[in-house]
Simulated scan of single mutants.
Amino acid sequence: MRHSVNRPPTPDSKDDRQRDLTLQETINIKLIESGEKERLMELLRERLIDCGWKDEMRTLCRAFIKKKGRNDVTVDDLIHVITPKGRATIPDSLKAELLQRIRTFLVATAM
């Protein structure tokens, strides 16, 4: 079988994924490689504990378990019910602080 000389070879789909990283993926890789992601996660944990968010989520989980019955609740049920409430109650000041730290990191790494 002869191959057309005028047609470029079909690119490997695996190679395409490696070359075409989105900006979000690139930032995530840089955060992980530098160790900054872990530092940001630790800061987030500390701030959520300090503002009482973690205790509030624990209380919501316990109330849901009490309402449904201990034997009738799965982790997936808890995640499904609690996640939207948890995301909505993260303080805006904490979101702004994390965003500012990410921006500072990006400027420092000249992205």
Rank of each mutant, 00 (worst) to 15 (best):
K54F: 08
K95E: 02
R101E: 00
K30A: 09
M1A: 07
L44I: 12
R103A: 05
S93R: 03
T74A: 06
R45S: 08
L94V: 02
K30I: 06
K30M: 12
C61D: 00
L31A: 03
R2M: 05
T109R: 13
I102S: 01
S93E: 15
L31P: 09
D50I: 05
R17H: 15
V75W: 10
D50F: 08
L99C: 10
F64M: 03
M41H: 15
D76T: 13
I29C: 12
S34R: 07
I32E: 08
E25T: 01
D16H: 13
T26V: 06
D77S: 09
K85D: 02
K14Y: 15
K37H: 07
D20H: 12
I29G: 09
K68I: 07
R19F: 05
D16M: 15
A96M: 06
F105Q: 05
Q18A: 12
C61R: 00
I82D: 01
D15Y: 09
R47T: 05
L31Y: 04
G35D: 04
T74L: 00
N28T: 13
M111S: 14
L21N: 07
A96D: 02
V107G: 11
I102W: 05
D72C: 11
N6P: 11
K54P: 06
K37I: 02
R19P: 08
G86H: 04
G69P: 01
D55W: 10
R103M: 11
M57K: 01
N6D: 06
D50P: 03
R62G: 03
Q24C: 04
L98V: 03
G35T: 01
N71G: 13
L78R: 04
T74Y: 02
D20F: 10
L43M: 03
N71E: 11
D72P: 06
T10P: 10
I90Q: 09
G35N: 02
V75P: 09
S4I: 06
I82Y: 08
F105W: 03
L60N: 00
R70A: 15
S34E: 13
T26Q: 11
R45Q: 08
T83M: 12
D15K: 07
I90N: 04
D50W: 09
L48I: 07
I65D: 06
I29F: 13
L44D: 08
H3N: 06
N28I: 02
L44M: 12
M57W: 01
E42W: 09
M57N: 04
I27R: 00
P91T: 05
R17M: 14
S13H: 15
L23P: 11
E36T: 14
P91R: 04
L78M: 12
Q18E: 15
P11L: 08
V81E: 06
R47Q: 09
I29H: 14
K30E: 12
S34K: 08
L106P: 05
L23C: 12
R70E: 15
K95P: 01
E56N: 07
G52P: 10
L98I: 11
I49F: 08
D77P: 01
E46R: 14
K54N: 07
M111T: 15
P8R: 06
L40C: 08
I27A: 04
E97R: 00
H3V: 03
I49D: 02
